[in-house]
Each structure stands twice: as C-alpha cells, then as structure tokens.
C-alpha cells in the first residue's frame, strides 16, 4: 500500500505472558472459602482483622501467616458504600444490565471487602448501612480454583439484603471509602 500520505501513526501491540503463582496465604483462604468459610488474619499486636488476609499486618508490619492468626469471619455484614453501574458496551464487556456493587464491612473484620456484587434487591433501595448476607454458589459450582488462591467471587455469587435494622452510620463511618 504505497500511498502518498505521510505516515504519522504506528500500531504497536505489546502482549506479554506472566506466570500466575498463588501465594500460600491466598491458597489457604481459597480452600476454606470453597468449604464455605470466610477467614481472616488477626494482627497479634494491634488486633486488626484482615480479610482476605495478606499474611502480615500492613500497619504493624508483623507476619500473620500461621494458623494461630486465623479467625473466622461472618458471611454477613454492612454496606458501607455502593455504586449503581450502567455498563458501557465496549469490546470485552460482559455486563448488559444495570447492577449494584458495594463495599461491605463483614461482621468480625476490621476492613471492607470491595467490588462486591449485590443481588435480590431493588436498586432504588440500596443504601449505606444496609445489612447483607452472602448467597453462596452451590458447592459443586464453587470454582475448582482453590489451588490458585482465587478470591471471594469464586464461591460467593452475590450479596442480598437481610431483614435486620440498618447499621447506624457512626458505627461504620471510618469505612465508607
């Protein structure tokens, strides 16, 4: 194609492959998750409970990578922040319908889990302070990805409202972002 226009742009495709090696802490978490339990790690110094755990307290810089640091976390909690998404249709987009995602402060955890899908709820009724619980995938459908240290979405399909009074704002004010 010997055109006469000057060439002013160039396409460049960079495609790189990386190995996915799961951390032992993530593998442990995923195994317990597949079995139906959400776990976290409690810092022996400050007591903060992290879920999913990273294997150390990022404030005290203390390792939390042994069984004695493990605690069980409830599969219910409080919506501290949310957004309603109208999915823009771009190449690769899988979402078609409007939906809600939320940050949820699970009972027993010191920090929120982010980007959690809400379901079984009228989108106009989603609010901060709303109490929700996990809707687990059937055991046979929980992705057989525990060995890869998969996250919450591999076992929990969505979170739905429960019939409990809302949590007062002052109890989660530090967790709204």
């Amino acid at each position: 194609m010997a055109g006469s226009e000057p060439v002013s742009f160039m396409q460049q495709m960079v495609s790189l492959e990386y190995k996915l090696r799961a951390s032992p802490v993530a593998v442990d978490f995923a195994r317990r998750l597949c079995a139906g339990t959400i776990t976290g790690h409690a810092c022996p110094e400050c007591g903060l409970v992290y879920t999913p755990p990273s294997g150390f307290c990022s404030i005290c810089v203390v390792p939390t990578n042994t069984r004695e640091h493990e605690v069980e976390i409830a599969d219910r909690g409080t919506v501290t922040a949310f957004t309603i998404v109208n999915p823009i249709q771009y190449r690769g987009q899988k979402e078609r319908e409007v939906y809600a995602v939320a940050s949820i402060l699970l009972d027993g955890a010191s920090g929120t889990i982010g980007q959690q899908r809400l379901g079984d709820v009228d989108l106009d009724r989603v609010r901060m302070g709303m109490r929700v619980e996990a809707v687990w995938l059937p055991e046979e459908k929980r992705k057989d990805s525990a060995a890869m240290g998969a996250g919450l979405a591999s076992a929990i399909h969505h979170w739905r409202p429960v019939d409990e009074p809302d949590t007062p704002l002052e109890e989660f004010a530090e967790h709204i972002i």
């Binding site: 000057p6 002013s8 742009f9 396409q11 460049q12 495709m13 495609s15 190995k19 996915l20």
Partner: peptide, 23 residues
C-alpha cells in the same frame, strides 16, 4: 503453572522525524 496475558495495544504518534523515515 497457569499463566495470564497482559496486552497493551498502543497507537503511537510518530512526529516529523520518525514519521518521515517510516514514510
């Protein structure tokens, strides 16, 4: 070991010198 792929499809502006050479 499983793998994942990172892809960066760039469109680069060439400017007067590189553009003239590639032209």
């Amino acid at each position: 070991v499983p793998t994942y792929k990172l892809e960066f499809p760039y469109k680069r502006s060439l400017g007067p010198i590189v553009g003239a050479f590639l032209t």
